[in-house]
Design a protein around this nucleic acid. Structure first.
Lengths: 125, 125
DNA sequence: TCGGGAACTAGCCTGATGGGCAGGCCGCGG
DNA sequence: CCGCGGCCTGCCCATCAGGCTAGTTCCCGA
């Protein structure tokens, strides 16, 4: 019944830097009207890091349209064969694009490539 | 003591819902130690909406400690051999845990498993 | 008109992957 | 005490993945 007037905003702190995360936690801990989310708890909003320390220009990875197609399918766990079928190309071509992706994303394998792409924001898991 | 030149944390509010954004703005506006970012200003952290359309919340897939170890390494693109080396176990055991992970995450392969885990919030890419 | 990048196809080959099967060791709880 | 689940190991085997070289079209811009 107390949900109508003051729906307390649950804030999840998703920041890698423990120092920064800790400071934010203590700063926000004293603010009434919002609450910090417990680990894994479904939050209303999330606090994410916004400064790019590594200056790795996220969306600056220059992928060809076909490579993006392959990438999204890879992110869904599709095998080369599945990629080939869904894209109407041969397995060889699928592998060709995957190899190109691995090089551009500086990954050692498809799993690594998907993780990198997700981290860089190239794809949205 | 030399390094604390009052590093005010700049927070950018990136939330579509104007009501929620406004409430957060007023709540955070009075907190000393942090400041709201001006439009377009480079912020330290950002507040993003987490309004979970994710019906599958509270996923907390029941993973054993060892399985979590293997999962995070998988997310880094580690091969079974690399997992085995870093965990001090045999390749066979690594495969054993991977197989268990695939089953629990309902994945067809390690790439799929990592993607699922990331989507479910089990791991943080 | 020509060069070059993108997309596509192909074969070959080695190592990685995943599934199945059969065990052994250990700690907790019935 | 014994079963059970977590954890670990071994072997076999079919398939997949990724690296290699090499060739084809199409289209755009110098």
């Amino acid at each position: 019944m107390s949900e109508e007037a003051s729906p307390v905003i649950v804030v999840a702190i998703e920041i890698a830097d423990p120092v920064l995360a800790d400071r934010l936690a203590s700063l926000l801990g004293g603010v009434s009207g919002l609450r910090l989310a417990a680990s894994g708890e479904a939050a209303t909003v999330a606090l994410i890091s916004r400064d790019a320390p590594t200056a790795v220009d996220a969306s600056e990875i220059d992928l060809t349209p076909r490579e993006r197609d392959v990438l999204v399918l890879m992110a869904e766990g599709a095998s080369n064969k599945a990629i080939a079928r869904q894209l109407g190309i041969s397995v060889h071509t699928a592998k060709f694009h995957v190899a190109s992706l691995l090089a551009k994303l500086d990954a050692t394998g498809r799993t690594d490539a998907v993780a990198h792409a997700a981290r860089l924001g190239v794809i949205n898991l």
